[in-house]
Amino acid sequence: MLALLFTIGTERFGLDASEIVEVAPYVELLHGSQPHDFVAGEFSYRGTPTPIIDLGLLTGQSACPPLLSTRIILVRRASPKYPDRIIGLLAEKVTETVTITPAQLHTTDQQIDEAAFKTPLTLDGYGTVQLLHLDRLLPTVVLDLVLG
């Protein structure tokens, strides 16, 4: 599987490409009435107002700096309340993709915590990359909060 690599705080993360709609450049965000601190703002994605979640703030770390490599990762999410909505995720150093083989995916010896939103993987040439689980990072509660 293809994973998009990015950084949150000090850790390197990877996200399954099938979950990604598009990667958009960091643009000036609209600051409306933010439902939560980790919501960086909104931007218009193909005519639809789309909320942006700062992953740094969401994971309890510092906000992402406004750099060229800081980009918005657009993902499709759905909740019972809001089926089929696109949400922007703000992350750093969004410049690379990596192909993760199934062997690599299953070589981890670690106990996978069901509650954990990341799974550490060891990739050649990249070191340790945390595989991000969106459904765990953004549960329905959070989605409703963000989208509402």
Partner: peptide, 10 residues
Amino acid sequence: SLNAAIEAEK
């Protein structure tokens, strides 16, 4: 290239 790669994966 990122978006292209993502689209190609899809």
